[in-house]
Simulated scan of single mutants.
Amino acid sequence: MKKALALFAVLCLFSGSAAAGFDGYVEVTNDTGYDIYYLYVSHAKSKSWEEDVLDEDILPDGHTVRVNLRGAKSSIFDIRAQDEDGDTYTVWEIDVARDDVVFTLDDMD
């Protein structure tokens, strides 16, 4: 009986942490040569982009912004930036638990 209760407690512990999802952040650096006006971070399985995380701010060339992510299903995200000319830069299925993002002209869509 004690073994069964101990196993149940361990399973509850792991299932609770899995249900909580991913809490973390990703740092996004703009190295495009242009100011970024819009930045979208969406779960990789999402069918649409989330709201602009910069809100009314911009991400100037050469600067970095930290985007906090809470309660996501996993740490795999798609990230899109849009510059002052309307050009977009996208990285797909990046594991933000392991990698940050540096947008360059090579990432232009």
Rank of each mutant, 00 (worst) to 15 (best):
G62T: 04
D78L: 04
I76S: 08
D35K: 13
S75A: 05
V41G: 05
A9F: 07
Y34S: 14
I36T: 15
K73E: 14
S74M: 00
A19T: 07
V10F: 09
F22G: 09
V10G: 09
N68D: 13
A19F: 08
K47M: 08
A20T: 07
E84N: 15
L11K: 05
L69S: 05
L59F: 06
G71P: 01
D83K: 10
D31L: 02
A44P: 00
A9T: 12
S46P: 01
T29C: 06
D78A: 11
G16H: 11
I58C: 14
R66T: 12
A20G: 04
S46W: 01
A9V: 11
D55S: 15
A44K: 00
N30Q: 07
H63I: 11
L11T: 06
F22W: 00
R66A: 10
T88Q: 13
L11G: 08
W49F: 06
G86E: 14
A19C: 09
L5W: 13
Y40V: 01
Y40P: 01
F22Y: 05
A72S: 09
L54H: 02
G62N: 07
I79V: 09
F22R: 01
I76M: 09
A44M: 02
A72W: 07
H43G: 10
G24Q: 05
V53P: 02
S15N: 13
H63E: 15
E50G: 06
Q82A: 14
D87L: 13
Y38H: 10
Y34R: 13
G71S: 07
D57N: 13
Y37V: 15
Y40H: 01
D57P: 06
H63L: 14
A44E: 05
V41R: 03
A18N: 05
S74W: 00
Y89V: 13
K47L: 11
D55L: 12
T64R: 04
L54S: 10
F77Y: 10
T29A: 11
E27R: 04
S74D: 08
H63S: 15
E51Y: 06
Y37G: 15
L69H: 01
G62C: 04
N30E: 09
Y40M: 08
I36Q: 12
L5Q: 07
D78K: 04
T88L: 14
D78Y: 03
V41Q: 03
S15G: 14
A18F: 00
R66K: 11
S48N: 07
E56H: 07
G33P: 08
A81N: 12
